[in-house]
Design a protein around this nucleic acid. Structure first.
Lengths: 152, 152
DNA sequence: ATTGAAAGAACCAGTTT
DNA sequence: AAACTGGTTCTTTCAAT
């Protein structure tokens, strides 16, 4: 865990919100000036705190109208099985999130696809690659909120 | 839904991957040149296909070590209740995702906090604001994958 | 931490295919 | 209608104070 002071925090908040602004604008927003802000950003990047810069695309506008949360229970817990399972998830671009869980349910996925048929294709492909015990798919009707911003 | 041609798709793929690169580099990557790419990006932005530009921060490095998926069942289905519930979710920065679901479970949340205590504080605050019937929290042990990139 | 300056990128108009 | 050219303006980057 990296030590971050108040100015760093402000810079990160600004960048999370809109990374397209110029150094000058960000410096003004955090109450500092160009060079010190630039040096801090460089350090935060080197430390890996600031990762890649991306654009957020409108999923609906691009025809990705279906979003599923998939709860997975498995009976297999060997290292080899897990390795294959993780590799399969990482390789599939429709899997936007994958977490290994504590407790009853072993994994949760967030899967973004064009429609229900595309989800089924994904599901069939996945279960043919690796054996899973029980799968529950939750279909999103409405995306109330979606952000990657941390509550700094 | 917006009509997108092959060049637009390539541009979006590049921007999703790394939006910090210069127009020239993106143009080269998609096999075109600066001006046409610039015009296309402008149009995609105006159409809302390209949204805000953000940086991805390292949650662990910043001390956000706990991530919960929260499954919520409610007995209330009136408009007024729902309005209050949605407003509460939108207002809470630790809620990174919130979806209204089809079926048995009514809502799913992704909640990112510093530790289990912070989750409990969030949970207590939420249920004191709005009445919910049943809440299950799934604790993430390992983030296998996390991206906002669409499978273009 | 500020200034300032050189290199580079974005943006836009005019022109061409 | 779409792509190239070139030039103005804004940014980034970094050295010197």
């Amino acid at each position: 865990m990296v030590r971050i002071d108040d100015t760093d925090r402000k810079i990160l908040i600004e960048l999370q919100e809109d990374a397209s602004r110029s150094l000058d604008e960000i410096a003004k927003a955090v109450g500092s000036s160009k060079t010190p802000v630039w040096n801090r950003i460089r350090k935060l990047r080197e430390a890996g705190v600031i990762g890649p810069q991306t654009v957020r695309l409108d999923a609906d506008a691009l025809g990705f109208e279906a979003c599923f949360f998939v709860l997975i229970r498995t009976s297999e817990h060997e290292a080899a099985w897990q390795r294959r399972f993780l590799a399969a998830l990482k390789a599939r671009p429709e899997v936007q999130e994958a977490h290994r869980l504590a407790g009853d349910i072993d994994y949760i996925l967030k899967v973004r696809v064009r429609n229900a048929r595309a989800y089924d294709a994904f599901y069939q492909a996945l279960i043919s690659e690796v054996k899973v015990h029980n799968v529950t798919a939750l279909l999103s009707m409405e995306e109330i909120k979606s952000t990657t911003a941390l509550p700094l």
